[in-house]
Design a protein around this nucleic acid. Structure first.
Length: 275
DNA sequence: AGGTGATGGTCAC
DNA sequence: TGACCCTCACCTG
């Protein structure tokens, strides 16, 4: 489920498994052989994410830049003595130490890059709500002077990094905001609600591995995490996303859908009316 | 067993 | 606007 929370959790897991080690890096599938040869055996210094981008920093100023795209997966596993770890399927990149193995499949992008190239990627991304140092005003300045719709702007990674199609629809619904309001017509208070909500919701996505936006579940997860427990999630995990034709949980009107920024946007035409 | 669409983004035409 | 990446959950039968 690659929105920003997925990449954040992945960076955390990769860092825990491989930082400070010298993993063997290979490309069983073959499409990353040259890149793998440039980093294999080097110390992995850090794994980090920014929006939907993932970076593995190796010693010697060599970074691996990964983007999962829509269908990519990256699995980090502890190695146990009985497990068969022979490559299966199209593994673009494999990291392996005696303790851990991680397989990357189907990414949009997997390349060795320089620190300058990493900086360039970071620079063109908007603030990531998962980062404590993120500056929401940077996003607001762009939104404020844009004639594009809010539904479009929320999906633009140069405006805001890490939000994807699920968080977009869900966060707008939570604040009764129309996706079709122009950025320049958005109220500062509305933007503040959206940003603060993402700052609240996305860490729950990191902690649970699910996108949790139903308020009752949000409260349950927060309470469970506060007690140091593992949250238990019920079935319904979205209020409008992929619920075309169903009743809006708030007002009972039908959920509608329309392609905005090349993805299906879901919203309630009654309680998210344009103002 | 087989088919489809998807939480994304880039590049070519 | 469509191809690509070629996975995976969720349908259908």
């Amino acid at each position: 489920m690659p929105e920003g929370h997925t990449l954040f959790a992945l960076a955390r897991d990769l860092h825990a498994a491989f930082a400070g080690t010298r993993p063997e890096v290979t490309s069983p599938q073959g499409r990353f052989e040259e890149g793998a040869a440039q980093v294999t055996g080097r110390e992995l210094l850090a794994a980090t994410s920014r929006g939907k981008h993932l970076f593995l920093e190796f010693e010697g100023e060599r970074w691996v830049h990964v983007h999962l795209g829509l269908i990519g997966t990256f699995r980090v596993d502890g190695r146990d003595w009985t497990a068969e770890v022979a490559p299966v399927g199209a593994v673009r990149m494999r990291l392996a130490t005696p303790e851990h193995v991680a397989d990357l499949r189907g990414p949009n992008l997997c390349a060795v890059v320089t620190p300058d190239e990493v900086a360039a990627v970071m620079d063109r991304l908007g603030p990531d709500p998962l980062r404590p140092d993120a500056d929401p005003d940077r996003a607001w300045r762009r939104i404020q002077r844009s004639s594009r719709s809010v539904g479009e702007l929320l999906m633009d990674q140069a405006v805001l990094a890490g939000v994807g199609n699920v968080y977009r629809s869900e966060v707008l619904w939570r604040h009764r905001l129309s996706p079709f309001t122009e950025g320049r017509a958005m109220k500062p208070a509305s933007w503040r609600l959206v940003w603060d909500d993402l700052v609240r919701l996305m860490p729950l996505g990191v902690a649970t591995g699910r996108i949790v936006t139903v308020e009752e579940q949000v409260l349950e997860v927060e309470a469970a995490l506060g007690r140091g427990e593992r949250p238990h999630l019920t079935e319904r995990t979205s209020q409008v996303y992929k619920r075309t034709g169903e009743e809006c949980p708030r007002c009972g009107s039908r959920i509608r859908t329309q392609v905005v920024a090349r993805r299906n946007l879901f919203w309630c035409g009654r309680c998210q009316r344009r103002r």
